[in-house]
Structure formats: C-alpha cells, structure tokens
Computed example of a mutant assay.
Amino acid sequence: MPITPLHLGIGSCCKAIGQQRFSMMIFAGTQFLMDIEPLLGLIYGWQYLHLYTHNLMGATLIGSIALLIGKPISQWLLRSILNDRNWSISWRTAAISAYIGSFSHIFLDAFMHHDVYWFYPWILKNPLLGLIPYSVIFYSCICAILIGGFAWFYLCKSKNES
C-alpha cells in the first residue's frame, strides 16, 4: 500500500535525536513524493511499482525535489502555525531531512518489494528482499514511531523546563 505512515518511524527517531537539525515535515513530504510512482502504478495497473523512484538515482532525484520545494513550503507553514516570521529551516537541515527520507524509504522497501533495484538500470537484483519478515518490519516501524515520538516530547519538555 503506497503512502503508508510506517516510514515515519525512522523520521520520528531522527527528530528525537536531531531536534532542530531535522525537519519532520520535510521528511514526511519526501515519503509522500517517493510513493507517487507506486500509487500511479496501482491505479494504472503497471507491472513494476517501484522501478524509477526506488533506486539510488531516483531517491537522489526525489530527495532533491523534496529539498527544493519542502524547505519553502515547510517554512511558510511553520511560520503561519507558530506566528513567528523569523522562524526558519536551514538548507542543511532541509537536505538532511529530505535525503534521509528518500534513502531510508528505499532501504525499508527493499526488504518487502521485489522491484526495488538499488542500482537500476544496471543491476536488476534485490539482495535484501525477504531477509526480514514483513511483520517484523511493520512492528519495528510502529515501535520506532512511538519511541521516537515519546523521546522527542520528553526532550522538548526537559529542554523547556531548564
């Protein structure tokens, strides 16, 4: 199923660790962009759902697009929500968030989908396929969302109290 929230587990943990040096909004936007190809593939009945975006070149391209459009969109949204015109996301933070988003996406999907070829179009093999059962990946991502989320809230709370 494309556009699954399970990939957000990695982002949640990165946000807890990186705090202001990681943008969860850009990371989540990258996850959405990564899954446009599989969504279209399901709609149109394509044989391969992860061919062009779920490889190293595709992830680099999607990460770059997410970086360029994600920074201004996220910055505008957060300035509006926080009502602080000086609030900003650095290009470094945006790049880290976008590229962690795109590369972690193909890493996780490689364990589950036969058509994730990291070195497409040169090598059409997926050495990670089936190494970890889907249920382990599913529950690990759920746990990562919870652990990362609680850690982030705890660290924010303790930072505000000091």
Results as ranks from 00 to 15, higher is better:
58 G>D: 02
145 I>S: 00
105 H>Q: 06
38 P>H: 08
28 A>T: 08
75 Q>K: 14
60 T>G: 11
22 F>R: 02
152 W>C: 00
49 L>E: 01
99 Y>W: 09
79 R>D: 09
81 I>H: 06
50 H>R: 12
134 Y>V: 11
34 M>I: 12
1 M>P: 13
84 D>I: 15
77 L>A: 07
51 L>G: 03
87 W>I: 04
81 I>S: 01
145 I>V: 00
31 Q>K: 07
110 A>I: 10
129 L>M: 15
44 Y>D: 12
34 M>C: 15
8 L>F: 15
17 I>E: 05
75 Q>R: 12
27 F>L: 03
31 Q>M: 14
158 S>E: 01
16 A>S: 05
45 G>D: 10
37 E>F: 10
147 I>P: 00
95 A>G: 11
137 I>G: 00
12 S>F: 07
94 A>V: 02
17 I>K: 08
114 H>I: 09
100 I>Y: 13
34 M>L: 14
96 I>D: 07
126 N>K: 10
144 A>K: 09
43 I>T: 14
66 A>G: 14
74 S>C: 09
29 G>V: 03
41 G>R: 12
159 K>Y: 07
103 F>Q: 02
22 F>E: 01
3 I>D: 08
35 D>A: 04
143 C>F: 04
58 G>S: 02
138 F>W: 11
83 N>M: 15
35 D>E: 07
41 G>P: 11
63 G>I: 02
125 K>C: 12
35 D>Y: 09
67 L>W: 15
7 H>S: 04
61 L>E: 05
82 L>R: 14
121 P>Q: 09
121 P>F: 13
45 G>V: 02
108 L>Q: 10
139 Y>W: 12
29 G>W: 08
143 C>G: 05
140 S>W: 02
99 Y>I: 01
147 I>S: 02
73 I>P: 04
119 F>S: 02
41 G>E: 11
142 I>Q: 06
96 I>T: 13
53 T>I: 04
71 K>G: 05
103 F>M: 04
154 Y>I: 00
59 A>W: 05
79 R>M: 15
47 Q>R: 13
159 K>D: 06
66 A>F: 07
58 G>E: 01
72 P>T: 06
113 H>Y: 14
97 S>M: 02
143 C>Y: 03
94 A>S: 15
58 G>R: 02
24 M>W: 08
23 S>F: 07
149 G>R: 00
34 M>E: 14
84 D>N: 15
78 L>S: 05
154 Y>K: 00
146 L>G: 04
130 G>A: 10
127 P>E: 02
103 F>A: 01
160 N>R: 06
95 A>Y: 05
65 I>L: 11
34 M>N: 15
116 V>D: 04
91 W>V: 03
152 W>R: 00
119 F>D: 01
33 L>G: 07
137 I>M: 06
115 D>V: 11
133 P>M: 09
2 P>R: 11
107 F>T: 09
44 Y>K: 13
72 P>H: 12
74 S>Y: 07
